[in-house]
């Protein structure tokens, strides 16, 4: 009973952890680079969800403070942190997407398996060439 009550009072945190792990699962197991970036975004938003929740207060208003309003107010600090975090996240995501487009242009695929194959093929070609020329 006590466990259930604790779980309910911390349900936001627990869901954030579950989302974080789901994102990590996608990032780690998917062989597709775009999907990996989507997984990364889920991880990011889960951390934001956690931080926003730390600033929440029961019965509280958004932190728009006018004279005469008794409050309580949600803490503005986590909100400011998350705003910065969201900007950082979109920056990283767009850079990742551009890099994916370049990988696709160079290796013809965004699947890690296929990229590894084309890399291995390139390596053996390079090695045989080197073997021929450096054999002095």
């Amino acid at each position: 009973m006590k466990i259930a009550a604790t779980a309910l009072s911390h349900v936001d945190y627990l869901v954030a952890v579950a989302l974080f792990l789901t994102g990590a699962w996608i990032l780690l197991t998917s062989g597709n680079l775009v999907k990996k970036v989507i997984g990364l975004n889920i991880m990011e938003t889960s951390v934001f969800a956690f931080i926003v929740t730390t600033g929440m207060i029961d019965g509280g208003a958004p932190p728009l403070v006018a004279p005469g309003d008794p409050g309580p107010f949600a803490s503005p600090l986590p909100h400011a942190l998350v705003l910065t975090g969201i900007v950082v996240a979109v920056s990283v995501t767009s850079l990742a997407l551009v890099l994916i487009l370049r990988v696709r242009a160079e290796f013809g695929s965004v699947e890690l398996d296929e990229i590894a194959l084309s890399l291995a093929a390139g390596d053996t070609a390079e090695q045989s060439e080197r073997h021929g020329s450096a054999d002095d």
Binding site: L40, V47, A96, I115, L119
Partner: peptide, 24 residues
């Protein structure tokens, strides 16, 4: 280079997130 950078980015971003989570 693009593949190396992407690998660096994915790992780096995940590690940054761990730091942000801990800050939280």
């Amino acid at each position: 280079a693009s593949l190396a950078a992407l690998k660096y980015l994915l790992l780096g971003a995940a590690s940054s997130l761990l730091v942000l989570f801990s800050v939280g």
